[in-house]
Write a protein that binds this DNA or RNA. Structure first.
Lengths: 343, 343
DNA sequence: TTGAAAGCGCTACCAG
DNA sequence: CTGGTAGCGCTTTCAA
């Protein structure tokens, strides 16, 4: 009467002629294992093509070795790049990356968050804003680590990584001023979104520093989408038609703005210069090509992932919050070409 | 002396004054539970904000309620849309979607596959090709269900979903012929990729049917990227300069081709008409805007996810393979505008 | 340096 | 309709 055939780690143990504890230790434990034993176990693992069951593992270890990326709009090409950057570092570390769009027809940010929390992910990269107090609290007492993208987040012990949006917009505005533009408007995304706040600040402060008055009605806020750009132009021109430049909070807005400006009979860059932010692929493709700021999306993703892995590895909870700012670069293209004959 | 405080499902059971089995049944079991009991249990779940531990669950049920999407290039805007479509149906069903790019600096398709397999995902949506025999076998005996995107896959019981590429290319070629183009070349992606094969076939068969001879050197194969399009143009014009139209296997190729054609001093569409496939956002943005075929990416994602969920639900393994073909639509834009003065 | 054994939280089976 | 309980595959004490 044969004993029941063992499976999983027990099969490996039997094959190698050691105990399951020993196999477990070889598999990433930290107690000493003799070289000989280790070799035998590794051979057995190989022979059986054995992979530990992640469920069983997480049940004991309270870690799932998975992280979730939550983005406001997966069709914005900025975010797939962030995802790729995260995967660059997570895959070699054995982590699974789940990418979640919070702008689904069927779901909102809160639901998506609760969904990934229920899955016990070890970490969340948060590219969205607008979480409720209750959801923030839920994150806090789930123990899930959070890294915020492009903004701070109101959770103790959360790191964040962003590019230096404020200086990016300073570069944009300086460039416009240096090419002779004087009446410069701003089309933002969602007004209270942190990136929007920073970008607006970069725009305002640079204008002020250069001695230009800025008025509240220089800026309109819509959404970080192409459609938002179209609406922004309408809102702006409903107030005042004298703009000779429009600074947009991202490339999608800028692309929509250019479309709409042309429909309204304005030439870009002849009558109005337009700038974006992010330098997505399309920025170089449209006509006129878009002056913008390179936002190091992939590097943001990599950095965010590294920050999370570091958090997972630390034993004390209290390490200081990390705040990493990546630099960016102005990319000058056709949409801000000087038009000497005009002025 | 109080008993040890229960946690997890036991805490809910205690709170509701029922057994753990009953809670488990309320939580998605299929045995009858009285309305009253159910209500009490649900109240307890709510009160404790309880979520079942996915690890423990998968340990018993042999299902992780997660699926992986493996794509050849996440920066190709087609795939984020597929991902969004999958999430449309997976999130409400409680499944977690992991998005994996097989074109990482650090990994290849085989590694990515083994990684997601080790995580015991219930299903894989496979947007890539080029798996080794060994990896194919690994999938087969892991029991993981596979749905192939845009191509068949050599795994028994795997469904697939594609858009009707062949007819899409027929539409493209007919359109070009009807606008007077006569010397029509083809720039493909990776030669043996299934979409490439179908698209080439649509191109060739339509030309033949219209009484045009097709020669082997009408077609070149590169990669499904913008860079591929540039190389394709060079390869084509190294052979023969007399083309008046170039049919490209996707939009990225077409965009690269247009760039390169212009660098070489050809006007588009004046000298050469160019077409793409997919209708990514950039297709409408570039100048000239790109004639292309709408590839219903999001719907492909939704369909793939539904196919997987259906597979997960079935008890007998042997249900017939499903093959779903989605229809597509020609989108005529500037890159194929007729140029009467030219011919 | 290694082994034995106790559970992690859940589902599924067996009873009632 | 409901409860008791074995055990999924692993990690982690505790012992040797």
């Amino acid at each position: 009467m044969p004993t029941k055939k063992p499976s999983g780690i027990a099969a490996v143990a039997e094959e190698a002629g050691v105990s399951v504890s020993t196999v477990s230790q070889v598999l990433g434990g930290n107690r000493p294992v003799s070289a000989q034993t280790r070799t035998r176990v590794e051979a057995a693992i190989d022979k059986l093509d054995y992979r530990p069951h992640p469920g069983a593992r997480s049940l004991r270890s309270h870690r799932t070795e998975s992280v979730a990326l939550i983005v406001p709009d997966i069709t914005n090409p900025f975010y797939p790049l962030v995802a790729a950057g995260m995967q660059d570092v997570l895959l070699p570390a054995g982590y699974l990356l789940s990418v979640n769009d919070a702008a689904l027809p069927s779901a909102n940010i809160g639901e998506v968050l609760r969904h990934v929390l229920a899955r016990r992910v070890d970490g969340i990269a948060l590219g969205t804003y607008g979480l409720s107090e209750a959801d923030l609290a839920r994150i806090a007492d789930s123990g899930t680590r959070v890294v915020a993208l492009g903004r701070d987040v109101e959770i103790a012990g959360s790191d964040y990584v962003e590019s230096d949006d404020e200086s990016g917009f300073a570069k944009v505005v300086e460039h416009l001023l240096s090419t002779g533009r004087r009446r410069i408007a701003f089309i933002g995304g969602e007004e209270n979104a942190h990136p929007n706040v920073l970008r607006l600040r970069g725009y305002r402060s640079t204008l002020s520093a250069a001695g230009h008055a800025t008025a509240a009605d220089d800026a309109v806020f819509t959404a970080f989408t192409r459609e938002g750009g179209r609406e922004g132009v309408d809102a702006l021109f409903a107030r005042n038609g004298g703009w000779d430049a429009v600074v947009c909070a991202n490339d999608l807005i800028a692309i929509g703005a250019i479309e709409r400006l042309r429909e309204l009979g304005r030439s870009v860059p002849g009558d109005v210069a337009v700038t974006g932010y992010d330098d997505i692929d399309a920025a170089a493709l449209i006509s006129p090509s878009l002056t913008t700021v390179e936002n190091p999306a992939r590097e943001i993703g990599r950095t965010a992932a590294r920050l999370l892995l570091t958090r997972f590895a630390e034993t004390d909870e209290g390490a200081a919050t990390q705040h990493i700012t990546l630099s960016n670069r102005l990319v000058i293209r056709g949409s801000t070409a000087p038009t000497p004959q005009e002025r």
